[in-house]
Design a protein around this nucleic acid. Structure first.
Length: 230
DNA sequence: GCGACAG
DNA sequence: ATCTTGTCGC
């Protein structure tokens, strides 16, 4: 894949917050992915506890069959601290290095983390989508921001996630019976309704959507390989 | 001031 | 996120 540089990464946390407010203005909440969707990518990052070496994987799967088509990885040392709300400044650099290696461009990317459901409406999925100028959806395993009611028990049940003013910013989605729901929100170029619908369409028998499961396994393998060769 | 806080 | 094995429950 090929994409231009949106900005540099030599930022302090306070500057990163200001940049998020700027970039959030560019996020598009409309569906622009080609129909029918033929490929969906999964993105995830792995690192050691208190370590600064990060390992990313981007896997390309066919849709709706979920066949593995391509796997790319990258490893990079990161010094930006973990600050809730600034996750993309830790994870995005290594993700972009991996994404560059992808031969084909996906119709959509599923990201492990939040999209719109963020205090400044600019989670990791938004940042990645804007940088690649591709449709993205955030699939968080726990809550960063937003209020909601309980979700139904059955797979497919969902309830809206709203900000303090009641505006919808995502949804809680039960991706399988008797598991904690996922926090789904649009990243870029995807509508609220489509984000939930597409995330569910990628779920088989596990809590996490198949593209993210595959990416999770791949970045962990990459970490072992990188640690082994060092 | 206190609690919350993606990965 | 990660440290870690087996184990209890649907």
């Amino acid at each position: 894949m090929d994409f231009p540089v949106l900005h540099d990464w030599s930022l302090a946390p306070a500057e990163a917050i200001a940049l998020q407010r700027q970039l959030a203005q560019c996020v598009l909440l409309q569906d622009t992915s080609p129909r029918p969707i033929k490929t969906i990518a999964g993105v995830d990052v792995s690192c050691r506890l208190h370590g600064r070496r990060f390992h990313a994987a981007v896997v390309l799967l066919g849709f709706p069959g979920m066949q593995l088509l391509e796997t790319v990885t990258a490893s990079l040392d990161i010094d930006f601290p973990y600050v809730p709300g600034l996750l993309s400044f830790r994870e995005l650099p290594v993700i972009l290095q991996a994404a560059e290696k992808l031969q084909r461009s996906p119709d959509l990317l599923l990201v492990d983390g939040q999209g719109l459901a963020h205090p400044r409406r600019f989670g990791l999925a938004c940042h990645l989508g804007l940088w690649l100028d591709l449709p993205t959806i955030g699939c968080g395993k726990s809550r960063l921001y937003g209020e909601h009611d309980e979700v139904g028990d059955e797979k497919g049940a969902q309830t809206p996630l709203r900000d303090k003013d009641g505006e919808e910013i995502g949804s809680l989605l039960r991706t399988r019976n008797k598991v904690k729901p996922l926090y789904i929100s649009p990243g870029h170029r995807v509508s609220l309704a489509s984000a939930t619908e597409l995330a569910l369409a990628c779920c088989t028998r596990y809590r996490l959507p198949e593209p993210i499961r595959a990416a999770h396994a791949a970045c962990n393998r990459q970490r072992l390989l990188d640690e082994d060769s060092a």
